[in-house]
Computed example of a mutant assay.
Amino acid sequence: MTAPVRNVLAAFDHIPEPWQPHRLVSVNDQDVKVARLHGEFVWHTHPDSDELFLVVDGRLTLQLRDGDVELGPNDVYVVPAGVEHCPRADEEALVVMVERAGTVNTGDQPGERTAEVRELPQA
């Protein structure tokens, strides 16, 4: 059985709130997630997983302890496993993230922003 075609831009139509990751697809042991980001997240690390950020629309600042990384549309950055970071979007940003399946969005800092990855509706 072949997997359905998924449209990244259309996926954002199913995400009403910021900081609520939705799985677009999985490949090997990685999840490709989409999320609307707005405001500041929490400082955290993912000890066992790199995290790739691809900005589709808007701007995203990845705050790192040794300096900020600024991303705009079509920019990609990988936060290495174990590096503490805090995403911030002063205006709404549409973002694709790739990380090991099962990775918790708040990493090593569980709290009120911890969210189970949600499934997008099938087309």
Rank of each mutant, 00 (worst) to 15 (best):
H44A: 13
L120Y: 00
R88M: 14
P47N: 14
E70P: 01
W19A: 06
P4A: 13
E99M: 11
D29R: 13
T114P: 06
V104P: 01
F53R: 12
P121F: 04
E91Q: 14
A115C: 08
A10D: 11
H46W: 06
V95Y: 09
V42K: 09
M97F: 07
S49R: 08
H46C: 08
M97A: 10
E84D: 09
T45Y: 00
L52K: 08
E84R: 15
E119M: 00
S49D: 07
Q63M: 12
R23Y: 00
H14G: 01
P121I: 03
Q63W: 05
A81S: 12
A115N: 13
M1F: 07
V117T: 14
R6H: 13
L52E: 01
R36S: 09
C86S: 06
N7R: 13
N74A: 14
D13C: 02
H14P: 00
L64I: 10
R59Q: 14
L60N: 06
H46F: 12
N7C: 08
V117A: 00
G39W: 02
Q122C: 04
D48F: 13
N7D: 15
D90E: 15
H22F: 02
V56L: 13
P4G: 10
D29S: 13
H14N: 10
V98N: 02
W43M: 09
L52M: 15
M97G: 09
V8P: 03
E119Q: 05
D68K: 01
V25H: 04
P73A: 15
R100W: 00
A89W: 04
E92N: 03
Q20M: 12
S49W: 14
P87D: 06
Q63F: 03
V55H: 10
E84T: 06
T45S: 12
D75E: 10
H85G: 12
G67S: 04
M1V: 04
E92K: 06
P47C: 11
P80T: 10
V76K: 03
D48Y: 08
L71H: 11
Q20P: 02
D13E: 15
A93W: 13
L64H: 09
D48C: 11
V98I: 15
H44E: 15
L24F: 08
Q30V: 11
T114F: 06
D75Y: 10
A11M: 05
Y77I: 04
D90S: 14
R59F: 03
N7K: 12
D57V: 03
E84K: 09
D50Y: 04
D13F: 01
